[in-house]
Design a binder for these strands. Sequence first.
DNA 1: TGCGTTTTTGACAATCATTATCGTTGCCAC
DNA 2: GTGGCAACGATAATGATTGTCAAAAACGCA
Lengths: 132, 132
Amino acid sequence: MSESSAAVRNTRQRSAVSALLGEMEGFHSAQDLHAMLRQRGERVGLTTVYRTLQGLADAGEIDVMRPPGGEHLYRRCSEGHHHHLVCRVCGRTVEVAGPAVESWADRVAAQHGYADVSHTLEIFGTCPTCPR
Amino acid sequence: MSESSAAVRNTRQRSAVSALLGEMEGFHSAQDLHAMLRQRGERVGLTTVYRTLQGLADAGEIDVMRPPGGEHLYRRCSEGHHHHLVCRVCGRTVEVAGPAVESWADRVAAQHGYADVSHTLEIFGTCPTCPR
DNA sequence: TGCGTTTTTGACAATCATTATCGTTGCCAC
DNA sequence: GTGGCAACGATAATGATTGTCAAAAACGCA
């Protein structure tokens, strides 16, 4: 029963992952990020990349997307809750906010007596510059 | 370059999977369904279960959900587009329709020039009968 | 109804992202 | 400076899903 002091230690590896995410555009897989770190000369283990990403995701500092392909994608995203509009051809992503959707989801869940509500929403389409 | 005649053949295995889905409530994984079929004495290969489920999903006859756990879940669902409100403890699921969400998603996508739009939305919560 | 063609099946192996393991390392508090 | 304890990381394990390919079954047509 740990009671406090989440004590997230400030390690070189955590900083490296966080910094990399800050510079990257778009979504990248854990394996991607790991490869990039090694290219930069940062010595970070793949396991640690996974752990760090999970931690950041839990803390709400990054966003996780689970595309049909089966690979988890991570991205430093703006604060607050939002969703993604993803081009299924080139992957270009637009962040979209939908306050109406948020409240709708909460309301629907409440109507059925569900508590502690969260939701996931992804929109897929073909962006203007991609051939259909 | 196949050109036509998808010619979906009517096989015993396909019927078995489809029938089973018709009787089941809630979501089940491919492996689950496979085990149930074997219990019934139906001799169906796991590979075939996967293929059949994929086919049914493509045809829009069943619904696929990809929970964080990582296992795909399949369910015979009502016609038309809808979403799911899932209890993250017991898995109890409620189908919910959200016309407002549909049109919102389409509108947002169109605003950004995205075509051929689809979306996925799942709501997670803790249902009234489950301890939090 | 019988036959040939084509799809489908299914056992098994391969794939591959993610997670567990566990000894070592290094951060942080005192 | 030093000790405790969380984080790290190389490797192995896991486990769902997909690929393979010969054999079997279904359908169309004569």
